[in-house]
Design a binder for these strands. Sequence first.
DNA 1: TTGTACTGTAATAAAAATAATTACAGAATG
DNA 2: CATTCTGTAATTATTTTTATTACAGTACAA
Lengths: 135, 135
Amino acid sequence: MNNVRFATSLHILTLLHLSGEELLSSDHIAGSVNINPAIIRKEISSLREHNLVGTREGKGGGTYLNKAAGEIRLSQVYEAVIQSPLLGRSNTPNPKCPVGRQINGVIEKLYTEAEKAMITSLDKITLEDFAKDFK
Amino acid sequence: MNNVRFATSLHILTLLHLSGEELLSSDHIAGSVNINPAIIRKEISSLREHNLVGTREGKGGGTYLNKAAGEIRLSQVYEAVIQSPLLGRSNTPNPKCPVGRQINGVIEKLYTEAEKAMITSLDKITLEDFAKDFK
DNA sequence: TTGTACTGTAATAAAAATAATTACAGAATG
DNA sequence: CATTCTGTAATTATTTTTATTACAGTACAA
């Protein structure tokens, strides 16, 4: 996962949490994250698909947390954002070689285990916990 | 880490392990992984810096495991290969925003924890264990 | 009922990361 | 000293990721 999406989503969610009831516009969020509002809206789109946030369109619209911060686990944020295997891609090895033929299966099993360990650690942390580190 | 390096290194090490005492050339390995020999040599270079393998130059040369497969933990392979944060990069947020100002620190702490959980799971598996899945 | 301020989304372009290729000097062998 | 390897750098190509632009659609509120 060599991108910035997880960090961006955490940033968005933190802002929403700390802003209480107030809806935040993508422009406002973009100003804090320091990236383009269209990217923020796209990211929010993923978060919304995972029911972590809701949005209201039109004038005065914006985004809000769809559940209490204590109910949002960082593992859910990870799930909303992940698109490629945590530990990287695979090769397309030579099927004529016994190792080449089997390695992707073996690697996938390994990666699944390792990712699970990571997700378990994220699962213990809620957005509320995360936000407590901001003074 | 959206690249293929971990998979490549695992492949290399598995071949070396299963080939016993025999030195393997980068050409031979490249044939099984199905990538360019120069990339294999570069990858081997990292593994060698981490003392996982040794190489002999010149005619008849090649690469060999530098320790017993049971002594090589997959966490070490990960360390040899990792170059960017497991969970992705950070933004360069707006320092005028309280959240923007602090978030990279908070994220780093989180990422470190999550990565540690993942590494712990890799640490339990040796190359020997890994290779047992090949029939 | 119309102007304004939002979102959603797609299309495109730009930048960055990754992988592949090529080349060649140097090492060890026989 | 020809051959077969490695090490490494330079270059190019490819893929991924991010940024930009544009505009239709929604909702509010005057």
